[in-house]
Computed example of a mutant assay.
Amino acid sequence: MKYVDVAVIGGGQSGLAAAHALLSEGLRPVVLEASGTAAGSWPRYYDSLTLFSPARYSSLPGMPFPGDPDRYPHRDEVAAYLTSYAARLDADIRTGRRVTGVRRGDAGFEVELADGSALAARAVVAASGTFGRPHCPVLSGLDGFTGTVLHAADYRRPESFAGQRVMVVGAGNSAVQIAAELASVARVTLASRAPVKFARQKIAGRDLHFWLRYTGLDITPLGGLLHEAPTQPVIDDGRYRAALAQGAPDRRPVFTGIDGAKVCWQDGTREEADAIVLATGYRPDLPYLAGLDGALDAAGHPRHRGGASATVPGLAFVGLEWQRSLSSNSLRGVGRDAARIARHLAAHLRGR
């Protein structure tokens, strides 16, 4: 069995940031990416997706995002950036390597792969993100809905919904973006438990992310205070607020149930629907840690303090939502958390 310093599970933005930080600490990571390219989930997002943050705030350590720093890069630009970043890293990045299990071993950990092979690692960084575990809320009757049900993770473009009656469930950025896009070809309702909140994309001529950094909310644990809000605001340049005001899409409280092809609204009316799109977020995708006693709680969430496992020495996480701050799971913030975790693991390994 081959031995490595640190096995980094996931080769997207979090895994690449972790590899960069570990190299800076003098460690030799091996990055294990399940897909065929080191770009994480970006190639699989919906076609029209663009970043909410300008390019100047959307890069990983050591490589600025190319081009106009004030533009908002498209999905494909981000995927290309990550691929280029991976190519420039002096790291062992292995694509097509899906991790199926991690357990304790003589070196620290044994990492099992889908092809039946394994490697021994002194430490492990779980950086596999959330895209592989879409969250589907409990909606009465959803299993019996006779129309199309899909999560935002499987949505790509609006054309196949032309002329249909579509319900988009959610109130976040993706929900509002997808609903507004679908409203150009279909009759769409945005159904959410709470009203949509908006944050202006530009304030006093500066992008919101300038102010988040200026105030420290984006880069310090203080930003975690925003996590307590019942709903997170949708970053908007005005187009989405206008779309809702014009009823394209309209917004209603989420339906109380589903009966066959019909949704049941809170006022007692029933309406036929062709499709339901669940833009209801994601959860940490960490099934390979189930065999490490205490690493995850009953809901599959990691037990950690700022990314360092609270229960398993030598295990760490990068790219968790709200890991330490508002920007922890974003291109603009993951590098800071990765550097902290790399220092933690380097100290742990020196002390062994």
Rank of each mutant, 00 (worst) to 15 (best):
A229C: 04
G15L: 07
S192C: 15
A279K: 00
I258D: 08
Q246I: 03
R56H: 06
R94D: 03
G108D: 03
G170N: 03
H304C: 07
T83Q: 05
T37I: 09
V169E: 00
Y240N: 12
G15T: 00
V263I: 14
P66L: 15
G62V: 10
G10T: 03
I276P: 15
K197M: 07
L292Q: 08
V263P: 07
A183F: 00
I178K: 00
Y3L: 14
P43F: 03
S330V: 02
S309A: 15
A243I: 00
A229F: 06
S53C: 10
P66K: 13
T130Y: 13
A162R: 11
A204L: 12
L225T: 07
D259A: 03
V102P: 06
A295M: 01
L27G: 08
D70T: 05
P69T: 10
F198R: 08
I178G: 01
L51P: 00
R213N: 09
Q164R: 10
A194I: 00
P233M: 01
R206K: 13
A290S: 11
H20P: 03
Y45W: 13
G216C: 12
G314S: 03
L217C: 08
M167E: 05
G147V: 07
A194E: 10
H227G: 14
C136Q: 14
I276V: 15
N173R: 04
D337G: 15
A153H: 15
H348G: 02
D285C: 14
S140W: 02
V254H: 08
Y81C: 06
E272V: 14
T100R: 11
A114R: 12
A194W: 04
T146Q: 13
G291P: 11
R239P: 02
V176K: 02
C136R: 12
A191T: 12
L226A: 15
P230T: 01
A79Y: 09
W211G: 09
G247K: 13
T100E: 15
E272C: 14
A179T: 01
L320A: 03
L119M: 04
A114E: 11
H135P: 13
T220L: 09
P158A: 08
L349A: 01
P54E: 02
I203Y: 04
S192Q: 10
V4S: 08
N173I: 00
I276F: 13
I203F: 09
L16N: 09
E112V: 09
R206Y: 14
